[in-house]
Design a protein around this nucleic acid. Structure first.
Lengths: 223, 223
DNA sequence: TCACGTTTGGAACACCGTTCCAATCCATCA
DNA sequence: TGATGGATTGGAACGGTGTTCCAAACGTGA
């Protein structure tokens, strides 16, 4: 009779898929992708690896569940309010910022794109493009270009973060690369030299948005 | 005296960085990324792992060297001949096709983007955009959007290939996904349902090019 | 011929994901 | 109430990985 009650209330210190995912995310955020091992996870949860495997099929599913926990909530964006272009920018920025906070999501999102709220993402972006008057025939190409771009930048940011773990002084790093660009051969690298100054003080987030706007711009001028 | 001669001609069966990279690429192409282990490599070269480590620092460097061997030649494209837009399309398609043939390059290119002919790629694309009249101020954003998009699609293709190893019947797979899209809720998934038919018989390569054109289009209509 | 730096092959190490299993918990039923 | 059996746990064990280490073989200049 109180069957329902007892099922819904679980012992707080019992292992559960959510508690495992939560602990895994803590490890991922604190020490990066390579630090997430079943041993480290078991130790943090004061248990053995076998117990974890009872709740989670394997490491792939664990990573996917972690990424889900971060990404899926992002997909629930105000249904269709506001200007469509702005809506698309918000969706894109939401993903960008999430991956900025949790770089490991980038690689995961990338490794298995179809496990996540991809359907919702396609719908969110697609519906807004329809509202902008994109013809049905061009819709899929446009949405998929936007999504590819978003995931592409996401993945690259994750790679960047993996390479420059955190404390790195970003501006001096950029300055160093820019200096190298400026020193490259004046005849063979005309464009690179011109980009060097912009590289030095560019902002990843703004540049990401510029790319989105470029795509939206191209979509607006479809014939 | 024949010092030079002896240095340049190496015994054909001696181990060398190039022979190792060559063998590694064969394994990668034949059996995928997971099959490349130092043991498998050593066995193929009839040697021990220690001998390989004398020529190659670690697995990361090995993978990077393999990717270099595929990608770097692609960057040497006819200096500045032909219509700039077409040139950019050719560069992009070159990378797309290379990754289609060697999916593992996609993930590697992605993991460490700056180890490769990225400078050349920035220059090749940038110079052509300059020729198209893109103002200096917008150059970096435009190039970087194009490069991000290219790498993004590349990575996703690699992920796809990893998931559907080869023999998979692509058209029936697409049909299955499309069917699922069509069955999704009629009210909440308007756009997805419209895209389903286009998903069913789309061509990855053409769609990739459509995205490039969208970006070029947006760049052309910059104000 | 000798000596010495270069190159090799494979054993050994630490660690990983995963499997297996004995021990424990706990709700249910006789 | 006590027994029973499934759900859940913790940790040992297994096969495999990247990497290190080192004794042996090679080959080249003195």
């Amino acid at each position: 009779m109180d069957n329902r009650k007892q099922r819904s209330e679980r012992r707080t210190d019992a292992l559960s898929r959510e508690r495992i995912v939560e602990a895994a995310i803590e490890i991922l955020d604190a020490d990066g992708e390579a630090a997430l091992t079943f041993r480290a996870l078991a130790s943090r949860l004061s248990t053995g690896s076998g117990a974890i495997y009872w709740h989670v099929a394997d490491k792939g599913e664990l990573l996917a569940a972690c990424a889900d926990a971060i990404v899926v909530p992002l997909m629930r964006i105000e249904v269709m309010a506001g200007e469509p272009r702005e809506g698309i920018r918000l969706i894109a920025l939401g993903i960008f910022d999430a991956i900025d906070r949790h770089p490991w999501v980038g690689s995961q999102l990338f490794r298995e794109p179809w496990r996540f709220g991809m359907l919702q993402m396609f719908e969110s972006v697609g519906a807004r493009l329809l509202k902008l008057g994109v013809p049905d025939k061009a819709l899929f190409d446009c949405v998929s270009a936007l999504v590819s771009y978003i995931l592409g930048v996401a993945g690259q940011n994750a790679a960047n973060a993996r390479m420059h773990p955190e404390g790195t002084d970003r501006s001096s790093l950029l300055a160093a690369v820019a200096a190298r660009w400026e020193e490259s051969d004046a005849e063979d690298y005309v464009a690179v030299r011109k980009m060097a100054t912009q590289l030095r003080d560019h902002d990843d987030r703004a540049q990401f948005l510029a790319g989105i706007d470029l795509l939206l711009n191209g979509i607006a001028h479809l014939r």
